[in-house]
């Protein structure tokens, strides 16, 4: 896939009386690693959730691979999240009742893959991400870094077009965070996967090809930021 894979135009979204997005525009190139930065409450996570089809904007359009995401039904968006997108969040994305390998296999199982085949595919990611021997552990038995790598494996197992990462290193110490980020970037580059990462850490943003900032619900580029200041 080349060219623009994901594009948002004039997104607006409010939570009750509080506006979170006020006409946000963004275009993401295929294979690009894009960092979205911004202060707390600026709307960066809300923008990511809209781009991923988790939230539906009040106004504006989102297009993914030529299809309107904002007008899709919930079931279609679920399907898209399962087959074309992957997610790595700060915490809370692993199902505690399942083992690590079952967590990785979950998107495949939800897609109707047979259990044995799904688990085999899941296990193939453990070695690549340095998780050997942790297949049978539950999320409570994993360290923060290990849990994030399992989440990364789960995000990659369907070979998605886009990975959405929301503060993926936010709950980790700097060394572990760096390791996770390196893995995310290298794996994405290896497979040509687009990555949209929300972060407030410049260290994480430095791994990206491009960086945008969200301020008061609108997207600005680093160049515009510098001009403004």
């Amino acid at each position: 896939m080349t060219g623009i894979v994901l594009e948002a135009r004039g997104l607006e979204l409010s939570f009750g009386p509080t506006p979170a997005l006020r006409g946000a525009d963004l275009a993401v190139e295929a294979g690009e690693i894009l960092a979205i930065m911004g202060p707390s409450g600026s709307g960066k996570s809300t923008l990511l959730h809209c781009l991923a089809g988790i939230l539906t904007p009040d106004a504006g359009e989102i297009e993914f691979a030529g299809r309107r995401l904002d007008t899709m039904k919930e079931a279609q968006r679920s399907e898209l999240r399962r087959d074309r997108f992957g997610f790595v969040f700060q915490f809370g994305q692993l199902v505690p009742e399942l083992t690590a390998e079952e967590n990785v296999a979950l998107p495949l199982l939800l897609g109707g893959r047979k259990r044995a085949a799904a688990l085999a595919e899941a296990r193939s990611w453990f070695g690549r991400l340095g998780l050997d021997g942790l297949e049978a552990r539950r999320s409570g038995e994993l360290s923060g870094g290990q849990a994030q790598r399992v989440a990364l494996a789960r995000a990659m197992v369907t070979r998605p077009d886009v990975i959405f990462a929301d503060e993926p290193t936010g709950a980790l110490d700097s060394l572990t965070g760096e390791q996770v980020m390196d893995l995310l970037v290298s794996t994405a580059r290896e497979h040509g996967t687009t990555v949209v990462v929300v972060t407030h850490e410049p260290r994480v943003a430095a791994c990206a090809d491009r960086e945008v900032t969200v301020r008061d619900g609108r997207v600005t580029t680093a160049f515009m930021e510098r001009m403004a200041s």
Binding site: I54, S78, L80, R81, R82, F85, L106, G111
Partner: peptide, 8 residues
């Protein structure tokens, strides 16, 4: 968590 990874 399941909904996040695509469960309808």
């Amino acid at each position: 968590a399941m909904r996040l990874v695509g469960a309808t």
